[in-house]
Design a protein around this nucleic acid. Structure first.
Lengths: 115, 115
DNA sequence: TGGCTATATGCTCATATGGCGATATGTGGC
DNA sequence: GCCACATATCGCCATATGAGCATATAGCCA
């Protein structure tokens, strides 16, 4: 199951997403390219701290950095997010489709039967 | 964006998913209820270590524990996974639909134009 | 060149995490 | 009540993470 992304990549992707500041940075990058200082202005964290978060996101492949003069604009990267989405997608039938709901009913009945 | 899950819950969910052992435990629980010792047998990790992983998963709401005699069977929980999926879903247009692909083309052109 | 601005890196600190072995707790069966 | 088995918790270690301040690097512009 989920052979398309390496284990370590998924570790990094989910690890990067496990922090609200980094998720907020992604939200911001989703709306368009953004510079480090713009992020610093928006987050009430020091510039080095933001840079460190960006490094985590970059290492996970969730963002890439451009180079425009002395700016290093942050751009969101779809493939890593798509990888996480693909991993989660394998479980989607648990809550999404008719078959999944039916499974849950069966599970619940089994639970109650055992109790 | 993504108001349905609290920040801390998402921190825990993604944090729990950021470990390959825990993802493998979920894979296993997805195929049906499983006991701690069954997991220990399958993972080449000590029983306390597995229990600790289970605690992380439980705290994130990704599993729940039953009680059948002296067993505490592990059951996968859809809502937390669905929460993570919903969060990721907000970005899905980046890689999935026609509009997303068009956006990417525009972005790329803009990039090249700026370079 | 020199100075200004944007960003990165080094250091330190406090806390979190993953692993282990040893041991405690809980539950069913004799 | 006691034993055996399943699971949880404790204490410990090594390493990782997030934060800050101070400082270094890098690119523009005068």
């Amino acid at each position: 199951m989920n052979a398309s992304q390496t284990t370590i990549q998924l570790d990094r992707i989910f690890g990067a997403l496990a922090d609200s500041t980094r998720r907020a940075i992604l939200d911001r990058a989703y709306r368009g390219e953004v510079t480090v200082n713009e992020l610093v202005a928006g987050f009430d964290l020091s510039q080095p701290t933001i840079s460190k978060h960006l490094k985590v996101l970059e290492r996970a492949g969730l963002i890439s950095r451009g180079r425009e003069a002395q700016f290093r604009p942050v751009r969101i990267e779809a493939p890593a997010l798509a990888g996480a989405d693909r991993w989660l997608g394998a479980y989607r039938r648990l809550w999404e489709d008719r078959l999944g709901r039916l499974d849950r009913v069966v599970e619940d009945l089994k639970q109650q039967g055992d109790a």
